[in-house]
Design a protein around this nucleic acid. Structure first.
Length: 618
DNA sequence: AGAGCCGCTATTTTT
DNA sequence: TAGCGGCTCT
């Protein structure tokens, strides 16, 4: 069943660029792949995983561990590998976020933690804001300390490490903070900085933990490596042996936008040294066409004057401006014009609403509120991906394992013929029941189960009107049919009941919400998935995504006060926003919000027109 | 009391 | 960029 390495061909794509081949075939040592936007970093990782699994270079039962920063990135990668490998090989590709990885270590080896640091099994995750931290610091009799220091100190200090010297006062405050998180409220809380420290302790003091990781994962992928923090890198260093493991790090320094949260400034340099990694840089851009790539190069050159030119491999498919700055006097004009522009494009059949994304630097919720009504008048629905349904964001919910399992069945219930949903549902059952692709009888059984469950759902939908109050009953029934225990088994992140329930409740809430808006089961599911909706999100959330047309809302001196020539990371953010666009990148600016940012417009050059917005609202 | 000036700061993530 | 608190000067 294995393919010889020299016979292996990439799948789903025509070919890889030469340098990608080189990075892919580097399996004996570590490699660091730097590549700009649209270079196909995710695709490269998916191909390399497929290569390692299909050739047996990563033999059963060994696994590949892929670590990303965001859930949807981890999910996309897992999906692409699953699509290309037989089920039993795909199962050996483990794709998760950094925080999910450290959390799974803590959850799995909780009992190996010393008493004073061992959290109860049902701890909650905290995201303390400045006010809460200030509050704590006052109680800890350290009101002079800036709350922003707390997280940094927490990440830098190893718990119970005699060898590390920490200032007595910092030590005292951090100990008080642990105590406060565990015992300060009705239930114990942990932040991710704390979870990271617990994982670090386990790896440092418990060789069983480390040995089991090393034995399981000879290959490790690190996505978006430019945004790795020193605490995260410490975990990688502890967990994997430079002499035995083969690590593949991919990323782009120009897209480093997490420095404010403690990302290393020279992640690739540090990585290359520690793992003696082969550096490879990719030079294609498969996402954007020539005209956009040319503009991207202008920005990239400002970020790094030595940057190599990349080759555009996507074809331009639109007429007119592909980049412009829309300039408005008043925000009412701006919002109406943008809404009408999108509505016209959709009406003309050039794009679907979900092909356009509205990006903002900050306050996506607030901007959503400002756009909502006007967009609705223009016949458009906005979807704020960061909005929470219950205790989970829509963006995260949509990339959850549970969602991937439930949706195809709901689709089967609401439509007579849907081969795509059928295949997905059956595939999921095969995976859930750990059947082999080659097990004819098992496949047949999975087919029958799929049919039976689909029938039950269809029956429910026929018997009930598509109303919000049906959501909970429907979801409960479906989960019961598939088997909650079985679903929870598939994912490390569902091991704790609280974690599973959080996702389940979010699913029920979003379904209930969309049933409210829609007039049928099928259209509710369309809304659920975000079809026919214009997504809105911050630049940070858009990292790794791509859209036919990108409209950045608020390229003006007040909305983006931090975008000044001396702030590297803000220019990186601008670059990230710009490079999300496959075909067109527009920026709106408004005089009422501070007006133009001249140096940036000069950087873009005269080929980017500044379009005076019309006055449409009296 | 009121005007004027200086210096500071706001945002962005992770189950 | 602009709103704030705190300061000084008239």
């Amino acid at each position: 069943m294995l393919i010889r390495p020299e016979d292996w061909r990439p799948q789903g794509v025509d070919d890889l660029e030469d340098r990608a081949w080189q990075a892919l075939r580097t399996v004996e040592r570590s490699v660091c792949v730097t590549a700009g936007a649209g270079a196909g970093k995710t695709e490269f990782l998916a191909q390399k995983a497929t290569y390692l699994l299909q050739t047996g270079i990563c033999p059963a039962p060994k696994r590949i561990l892929a670590i990303s920063f965001k859930r949807d990135a981890a999910r996309t990668l897992a999906d692409r590998v699953a699509k290309r490998c037989p089920a039993d090989q795909g199962r050996r590709f483990v794709s998760m976020t950094f925080d999910a990885f450290t959390k799974s270590l803590v959850d799995q080896f909780r009992n190996a933690l010393p008493d004073q640091y061992r959290p109860p099994a049902d701890y909650q995750i905290a995201f303390p804001n400045k006010r809460i931290l200030d509050d704590f610091l006052r109680r800890a009799e350290a009101p002079h300390v800036a709350s922003s220091k707390l997280e940094k100190w927490m990440s830098a200090r190893r718990i119970l490490d005699e060898e590390q010297i920490v200032a007595a006062e910092i030590d005292r405050i951090l100990n008080a903070y642990w105590d406060d998180q565990y015992n300060g409220g009705a239930q114990p809380f942990l932040t991710f900085a704390m979870i990271n420290r617990l994982a670090e302790f386990l790896l440092r003091t418990n060789h069983r933990v480390r040995d089991s990781l090393r034995a399981t994962y000879p290959f490790i992928f690190l996505d978006e490596f430019q945004d790795t923090t020193s605490a995260q890198f410490e975990i990688v260093n502890m967990a994997f042996d430079p002499d035995r493991a083969s690590l593949t790090a991919v990323g782009d320094d120009k897209q480093r936008i997490m420095g404010w949260a403690g990302a290393l400034t020279n992640a690739f340099e540090v990585f290359q040294q520690r793992y003696n990694a082969l550096p490879v840089s990719l030079l294609m851009n498969w996402r954007s066409h020539d005209d956009l790539v040319e503009l991207q190069h202008r920005i990239a050159s400002r970020i790094n004057p030595q940057v190599e030119r990349v080759q555009a491999r996507a074809a331009r498919a639109v007429d007119g401006d592909v980049c412009a700055i829309w300039d408005f006097a008043a925000q009412e004009d701006e919002v109406v014009t943008i809404a009408r522009w999108i509505a016209d494009e959709v009406a003309a059949g050039r794009i679907e609403p979900h092909d356009v994304a509205i990006l903002t630097r900050n306050y996506a919720d607030r901007v959503e509120g400002e756009l909502n009504e006007v967009f609705s008048d223009a016949g458009l629905i906005i979807r704020n991906l960061a909005r929470n349904v219950g205790d989970i964001s829509i963006q995260d919910l949509l990339s959850e394992e549970l969602t991937e399992i439930l949706l195809p069945f709901l689709r089967l219930g609401s439509s007579r013929r849907n081969p795509e949903a059928w295949a997905a549902a059956q595939e999921n059952l095969v995976r859930l029941e750990a059947l082999s692709d080659e097990d004819e009888l098992g496949l047949q059984k999975a087919g029958q189960r799929t049919e039976a469950i689909a029938r039950t759902i269809r029956h429910f939908m026929d018997a009930h009107d598509p109303e919000p109050e049906q959501a909970v009953g429907l979801v409960s029934m479906l989960i019961d049919e598939i088997g909650e225990a079985r679903i929870r088994q598939t994912s490390a992140s569902y091991q704790r009941q609280v974690d599973f329930d959080r996702v389940r409740e979010g699913f029920e809430m979003l379904l209930s919400e969309t049933l409210e808006q829609a007039d049928g089961w099928g259209s509710a599911l369309d809304l659920f998935e975000g079809r026919a909706q214009v997504p809105i999100m911050t630049i940070h959330k858009s990292k790794g995504m791509e859209f036919h047309t990108m409209i950045f809302f608020g390229l003006d001196a007040r909305s983006w006060w931090s975008l000044t020539p001396d702030k590297d990371e803000e220019l990186n953010s601008f670059f990230v926003a710009f490079t999300r666009a496959k075909q067109r990148a527009f920026f709106s600016s408004c005089r009422a919000r501070g007006g133009q940012i001249r140096w940036l417009e000069e950087l873009l050059g005269p080929q980017v027109p500044r379009v005076a917005g019309v006055h449409v609202v009296d």
